[in-house]
Amino acid sequence: MKSNTMDTVELPVGKKKKVETVGIFRKRPKYDEEGNLIYYKKKKLIKNRVNRSAGGDVMMVLFLLIAGVFMAFPMIYAISNSLKPLHELWLFPPNLIVRNPTVANYKDMFTILSNSTVPFTRYLFNTLFITIGATFLRVVSASMAAYPLSKFKFKGRKIINKTITMTLMFAAPAAGLANYLIMSGFGWIDTWLCLLVPALGSSFSLHLIRGFVDQFPDSVLEAARIDGAGEYRIFWSILMPNMKPAWMTLIVFSVKDYWNQGATIYIYREELKSLNYALGQIAAEGVARAGVSMAINVIMMIVPVLTFLITQSNIIETMATSGMKD
């Protein structure tokens, strides 16, 4: 391969592989005869993949766009309607996008909430407390249990792991009634223990974290042990920082579950009920509340969507290890 023409240039060793990716383009550096960088040549990334036809790509993007519109429609509709003044809400035929946006519905929501028998801040506190508390318990307990279940050798490990995997296959809500019986046996009904304690034993959470710990190299743990680190120290200083994507993912799923939790069979007292329940009661008052209930839907959506946005890359990394192993 020796040639001195302008377009095939011998590259200095080591610079040949330097290819950067920018958006859908791959930047290929071009060098002159002495190996200095002249310019970047952009090359489309998608075209580089094997077994892809241009027609197929176009169809695919079109289909994704249409599906995206269908998925986004109810949410756009909720946001738009929450901004509509009253007369625009009952326009016939209805228009999808608001013409004269107003925040009146959001103001009304706060007025209604501050006039309720149990103050709005109490519902908000309840939901925040349960969401944060239960999420914390889930993460800590699942991470702690995942470490020995994945890395220790002890009798019964296999059977415990298999049982946990088995329970993923139950339709979990069916256990609700028996849980009610057990909790009333403990005298926990109508207290927060009903919501917080079960968070310690979530098999879904354990499964997620366990899959991630399985990938963690044993050699690192062994090296730490030889250096004299105890198991607690290994767990806290080595494993937990490295499992960040896993517990961030768990936080997103958990926040989604607890934040959206409405009425439960375990809680009767009004002052212990959740924000979602309280807001649902307003929406249930009928069509006169249509604008306000849209505002509620928008408000309730913000927290889970934000947590997801912040942690998206972690989630993908974690779910990659969530597969079932035989």
């Binding site: 109810p74 949410m75 909720a78 929406a283 839907n297 309730m300 969507v305």
Partner: peptide, 14 residues
């Protein structure tokens, strides 16, 4: 965009 509906907890009012 695709995951948001299941994050939003149903949006039954909508």
């Amino acid at each position: 965009l695709f995951y948001a509906p299941s994050l939003s907890g149903g949006m039954s009012a909508v």
